[in-house]
Deep mutational scan, measured.
Amino acid sequence: DHDVVPEDKFQETLHLKEKEGCPQAFHALLSWLLTQDSTAILDFWRVLFKDYNLERYGRLQPILDSFPKDVDLSQPRKGRKPPAVPKALVPPPRLPTKRKASEEARAAAPAALTPRGTASPGSQLKAKPPKKPESSAEQQRLPLGNGIQTMSASVQRAVAMSSGDVPGARGAVEGILIQQVFESGGSKKCIQVGGEFYTPSKFEDSGSGKNKARSSSGPKPLVRAKGAQGAAPGGGEARLGQQGSVPAPLALPSDPQLHQKNEDECAVCRDGGELICCDGCPRAFHLACLSPPLREIPSGTWRCSSCLQATVQEVQPRAEEPRPQEPPVETPLPPGLRSAGEEVRGPPGEPLAGMDTTLVYKHLPAPPSAAPLPGLDSSALHPLLCVGPEGQQNLAPGARCGVCGDGTDVLRCTHCAAAFHWRCHFPAGTSRPGTGLRCRSCSGDVTPAPVEGVLAPSPARLAPGPAKDDTASHEPALHRDDLESLLSEHTFDGILQWAIQSMARPAAPFPS
């Protein structure tokens, strides 16, 4: 592969990997390779389809078979030569091979799209000592099968071997295949498990690692696999990028399955594409389908809103127990993405979901129960707010008499603000006073009005108090039968009158 990737590009890729991570280095090298001529790309395919690569990765054979028959990708048995050289000459001794072996032994695996480039050397060096003999053996194999790289107009793939297949390693990572398949204008990513390549439709969760975000852009890794992070704060999961590491605690105790298979379609829109997988259930989501939507993949363990709600429900009964003089119970939860139609709101002032922060849900004790107040519409209280300059209440639009249902020339009671006709409430011909108009209920007259088809109010509507207090003497005590009587009149003013009279009014101040 030294004929494909020059030394300066190799060093530039290593520097970019240390600065921005393996995914960015892979993407940059792939983009550079696509700008080369067809001879360089053909050399790339020839390096990929060597015999030892085909033996190690069985899924490469179907890719090789898909090439046109007129494309010669065979390799000479006596060494490598550029395709432009007409004579089959043995190339001179390859010093770059020693360079590659020494550099890969030092860096474990470079971040390139060629056999030198995919593992994360920093994480491997940190986690190597417990498994040094086995990992050293794996390093000797890295130059042979560490990076199976493929690129063409139909298929483009980048393979990364790992030393996680050490025997006896619980939940060992089998390997990473960062794979971009450009077929019919689409893009897919796969993962390699035990020599087999699994596409998103049959993606397997190998051991402790999972394909957290099938994305090839942005600074985030394709698999949430930063070796420096180790395990999740809650004892979460091992990262795919942690090559040759000792077994780590796999999943939280509440995880239903340690080796679950995540779905390959969004649980909201039932469509495929780039998904984020939940650590607590097999569901996966688009970032845009979450509520609120996320802009980037959160670091650490992530769970959907259903799993978060289940966790909150487990903690909430203990938080609601009476604990005198104790601060509110704080339950730190990872930043969760909410699927459509589901929402768990945190306290005000918290950062938005999706940031690399930890939301704190506070379970406050329930407030003391209070008697429910009568629910009145805002339009129902409008007549009470229509007060004239002299303190006389004006008529609201649409006000109707509670007896006849007519809204023409209605009066407004100064005591309960109900609309009424003087002739309907006082049919006996009582003279109307000039000021202080009161309806039949507030004036103490319980004589029913002779209106055909309208039920008369119940005599129990009024329960006047002592006459010594004029204001308190007109406080009506309405009961269920009074409400039914008012409802039978089918008037809004009657219902409003009952609601206003049912509310307690402050006692009249004593004259000074």
Rank of each mutant, 00 (worst) to 15 (best):
E350A: 14
P365V: 14
A467F: 09
P247R: 10
C281V: 12
G398P: 10
E342R: 10
K261P: 13
G402A: 12
V329Y: 14
N262A: 08
L462P: 03
A248G: 15
P427F: 10
C401I: 02
A370Q: 09
E390I: 11
D406T: 10
H286T: 14
Q260Y: 09
S299I: 08
T414M: 15
P292H: 04
G241H: 14
P253Q: 11
A366I: 07
P247E: 12
E274C: 06
E452Q: 04
L381C: 07
K362T: 08
N394R: 03
L333C: 04
L478Y: 13
L462T: 09
L258C: 10
A371W: 12
E263H: 15
S431Y: 13
R432A: 04
G280T: 06
D445F: 07
A288S: 10
C401A: 02
V360W: 15
P348G: 11
V344M: 09
T358I: 14
E296I: 15
W422A: 11
A380Y: 13
E326F: 12
R323L: 09
D469H: 12
C281N: 10
D255S: 13
A319P: 09
A310L: 14
H479M: 04
G241E: 05
P327N: 10
T408I: 11
Q313S: 11
F492R: 00
L487A: 03
D406F: 00
V246T: 07
S254I: 11
C439I: 02
A460I: 10
K362V: 14
Q393E: 11
G272C: 11
D255R: 11
A419L: 06
L496M: 00
E343H: 14
A504L: 02
E263A: 06
L411W: 04
G405Q: 13
P322A: 10
L337T: 10
Q393T: 12
D481T: 03
P433R: 08
D482I: 02
P247A: 10
A380S: 09
H363S: 05
G405M: 14
C442M: 00
P397G: 13
L252Y: 09
P383Q: 15
H363G: 08
A366L: 00
L275N: 04
C269S: 06
G273S: 08
P334M: 03
G375P: 09
L308I: 13
Q393R: 06
G349S: 09
W498I: 03
K468E: 04
W498R: 01
T491K: 03
F426A: 02
G436D: 07
Q260S: 05
T358P: 08
H382M: 00
P249G: 10
P367N: 05
R440D: 08
L395S: 12
D409I: 01
S431M: 01
G434E: 12
M355I: 09
D279K: 03
D356I: 01
S369L: 10
G407L: 10
V268G: 11
L373K: 05
T357V: 13
G444Y: 06
C277F: 08
V344E: 15
G241K: 13
G494W: 08
S485C: 06
D445I: 11
D469M: 03
L308N: 10
M503R: 01
S291G: 10
A507E: 05
Q242V: 10
G391K: 10
L384G: 06
S291H: 05
S369H: 15
E314N: 06
Q392S: 11
D255E: 05
A267P: 11
L364K: 09
S245H: 13
